[in-house]
Amino acid sequence: MAHAHNLAILRGLIKFKSNTQKIWGVLILLSIVTTVEVALGIVKPSWSLAPVLGMKLLNWIFIILTIVKAYYITWDFMHMRDETKGLRRAVVWTAIFLILYLIFILLQEGGYVFDVYKDGFIKRDF
């Protein structure tokens, strides 16, 4: 079985000598990202609480960092980097498209229900 692994991450910025080394490199990267997330979650610096696009900036940072982690888990641990373009797109774009749609529909509706409760003649505080 010949398995050619693509050993470069971060668009070729870091190149590893062997697959094992790449695995440890990715572990370090994921650990750093998780540590940053937890530190931000505990400290909650005041600049990060500014509202951006309907959410706190901090929440956007968390979501982006999560997607970064998901990318490295899928690309390097699950070896998506080494699969053909066709398989990669069939898996990734299908999921991303459907999930974005689902999230949009449900969050939009949740916000609407909140407004109905808030502005309508419904008493909740008793």
Binding site: A95, L98, I99, L102, I103, L106, E109, G110, G111, K118
Partner: peptide, 28 residues
């Protein structure tokens, strides 16, 4: 296995999106 994972990922995102729905419903 990959396509099973895609379908399972959709199940989980259904749950998490439902959580998001309830959270936005009671955002305050």
């Amino acid at each position: 296995m990959w396509f099973f994972i895609v379908s399972d990922a959709l199940t989980f995102s259904g749950f998490l999106a439902a959580y998001g729905f309830s959270r936005f419903k009671f955002i305050d």
